[in-house]
Amino acid sequence: MSTLTSIDELVFGATMPQSVGKCEPPTDHALLEATRDGDEAAFAELVRRYRGQITSYIYRMTNDYDGAVDLAQETFVRIYRARDRYQTSFAFSTYIYRIATNLAISEIRKRKRRRLISLTGSIQTRDGREEAIEINPVDVRPLQDAALVDAERRAAVARAITTLPEKYRAPLVLRDVEGKTYEEIARILETSEGTVKSRISRGRNLLRDKLRAYL
């Protein structure tokens, strides 16, 4: 493993750790252990593997690209700083998604406290639940460009997801957007599989009500 003397020498994705064999890429665990031993290139490889996934996942959770990039970077910084405390008892992807989920949920709560109004807006019902308000309602006029229709539909779906309560949002995104298994989701969210299934089902029902016009 090569050891860099300065963080500035770190070029993500440009170098591969020396332990990388020609046949099989190193596992995430091996890369993190190498990072723990001071191999910056190993950490660069980890970043290269997960930066897109984590950014996309947080973006689906928050519907804010700049914020998602910032939180994705914070996720990697936390992993780097806690590299000595990492335990290989479960998959690295579970570990990194858990950190990302916690950061995203924390950000969502912060925004709630700040009472920021999103593009969709949201109002609370009398029982405290949030309901989406379609500030930009579905335009029923025929559009000439099918691409615009798709873009509008995707934007509506993204907005609808962000109006879901966080306890339904995270498992639903992990399942239907990221394609994680129930077992993985349960590990990421540190809950039981039964709870995950139940929350995903309820989340879908809520989403169906919000997106009925597109179904």
């Binding site: 994705g13 970043v47 994705a72 910084v77 798709d150 779906v157 997106l211």
Partner: peptide, 20 residues
């Protein structure tokens, strides 16, 4: 299908530089 149709976003080009 609707939820799955959402595009996957990618990290920005300066992601690594900012992370460094």
């Amino acid at each position: 299908a609707l939820v799955g149709s959402l595009d996957k976003v990618s990290a920005p080009p300066d992601f690594d530089w900012r992370l460094r």
